[in-house]
Design a protein around this nucleic acid. Structure first.
Length: 436
RNA sequence: GGAGGAUUGGCCGAGCGGCCUAAGGCGCACGAUUGGAAAUCGUGUUGGGGCAACACCCCUCACGGGUUCGAAUCCCGUAUCCUCCGCCA
């Protein structure tokens, strides 16, 4: 959420930057709502001050009345005046409430300002490639995709997943399930051990308030799974970013404890409304998948640097696995609601003969922190704004797909990256699903 | 699900319907003292908002209502935590 005052200070600059992501800011409307709120608050404050004075007078008069009986009529008049004031305060408060609600409703749907580093455009075609790392493997045969490989080996079973839950679910079996666990554990060990992240095991069901704080609500309700009993409604997290970022909602963090680096391996639930027909094959786009997430909270001015650091941590996953990938910078109009700058990492998928998204690392600046009330305080009591960043480090399913496809042999076996063997307990999955 | 108890500032902890502009302590910051430190002394220290303003004003004692001229204090509701019972992986 934006600070109305900062947005107004930026003025036409804000309009220009938001236009880059296809949002038309009504500056005049914002200005009007903002000053309506300010004047309403001013009115209430004045009336309250007067009311406090009136109450004090009544108190004094009452005390005086205890010693002389003839002040009683005076006292009644004073009380009457105080009562009238209260009436007027009530009316003025209604106006404040209405003005604040109107302003907040507007602010909540304005997306973050894109950084000037984000290229122009509004589609994935407008992204700019930053670098390519690793060589896509050259096969002397036609590489199979992960669905073909996984089903042939009997480690992925889409038919039974559909029987259980319908479309867009997957089921891993035997070495497939072990491989998922191995990948996740490997990523966690890398981030907690080498990159200095603190691991969390958070709730997967969170309140609407938490979803609002991280910006999923009110705009993206249709993307979420909702559950509840009685009148209690909870949402299934679409990513661990939600609980990890909201952890410190309404808290003031000591500046010297920044940056905070958090990681968590959780299931993620997404309705994928609006993606009908896209990526219907395999484990690339599911209603439920698991992911190791990275979240960083830092001083506001550090966020561009922190983004590069976090991107490096996500890239390290692929480098360690020896997988070919590239990094792109998303166009202003193609970024998520909260982001001011986003890098995507795309891994090479031989089965599709293309690079596909495997990680999205975003700098949300102060946008998300303001919305959820995360602040900082230095040793001298000075208050500071904090920035939040989040990135996948990495999703398990897509990582597994990339491993199966990039590490396959002509005989239908898959040789795991060296680093995974200790976690998986085997180094190869043969065509018949046995391991060695 | 049932019965009781609790919720006060960064932390602990007092608090009679008006002098709560919240005692006291701890912690922290700054200063004095010191060769330097400890100890000691002094000062400051909840967080928001209105405003050009560190002036002034308003709000904030879990949250939301109510009673009252006036609520941390009384009443109602909600949330969370604790204890016990029930159920349960």
């Amino acid at each position: 959420m934006h600070d109305a005052r900062l947005l107004l200070e930026l003025g036409d600059e804000a309009v220009r930057r938001l236009r880059r992501r296809g949002y038309e800011l009504d500056l005049a409307g914002l200005e009007a709502m903002s000053s309506r709120r300010a004047s309403a608050i001013g009115t209430v404050d004045e009336l309250r001050a007067e009311s406090k004075r009136a109450a004090a007078e009544v108190g004094k008069a009452a005390k005086a009345g205890a010693s002389s009986a003839d002040v009683a009529p005076d006292l009644t008049a004073l009380k009457e005046r105080a009562r009238e004031l209260k009436e007027r305060i009530r009316e003025a408060e209604e106006e404040v409430e209405a003005a604040e609600a109107a302003l907040r409703d507007l602010l909540l749907v304005i997306p973050n300002l894109p950084s000037d580093d984000a290229p122009d455009g509004d589609s994935e075609d407008d992204a700019v490639e930053v670098r390519r790392v690793g060589e896509p493997p050259a096969f002397g045969f036609t590489p199979r995709d992960h669905v073909e490989l996984g089903e042939a080996m009997g480690i992925l079973d889409f038919g039974r997943a559909a029987k259980l839950s319908g479309a867009r679910f997957s089921l891993a079996r035997g070495p497939g399930a072990a491989l998922e666990r191995a990948i996740a554990t490997f990523f966690l060990a890398l981030h907690t051990g080498r990159h200095g992240y603190t691991e969390f095991s958070p709730p997967y069901l969170v309140s609407g308030q938490t979803m609002t704080g991280t910006g999923q609500l009110p705009k993206f309700e249709e993307d979420l799974f909702r559950t509840g009993t009685g009148d209690r409604g909870l949402y299934l997290i679409p990513t661990a970013e939600v609980p990890l970022t909201a952890l410190h909602a309404d808290e003031i963090l000591p500046a010297e404890t920044l940056p905070r680096a958090y990681t968590s391996w959780t299931p993620c639930f997404r309705s994928e409304a609006g993606s009908y027909g896209r990526d219907t094959r395999g484990i690339l786009r599911l209603h439920q998948f698991s992911k190791v997430e990275l979240v960083r909270i830092c001083a506001a001015e550090e966020s561009p640097r922190e983004l590069e650091v976090m991107l490096g941590h996500a890239e390290a996953c692929l480098q360690e696995l020896g997988l070919a990938y590239r990094v792109i910078r998303l166009a202003a109009g193609d970024m998520g609601f909260n982001a001011q700058l986003t890098y995507d990492i795309e891994v090479w998928l031989p089965g599709q003969d293309t690079y596909r998204e495997i990680s999205s690392c975003s700098d949300c600046g102060t946008f998300q922190a303001r919305r959820s009330g995360i602040r900082s305080k230095d040793a001298h009591g000075g208050r500071g704004q904090v920035a939040t960043l989040n990135g996948s480090g990495l999703p398990i399913g897509r990582s597994m797909a990339a491993i199966l496809e990039q590490c396959q042999s002509e005989d239908g076996s898959v040789t795991l990256p060296e680093v995974l063997a200790p976690y998986a307990g085997f180094r190869r999955i043969l065509a018949d699903g046995t391991t060695e």
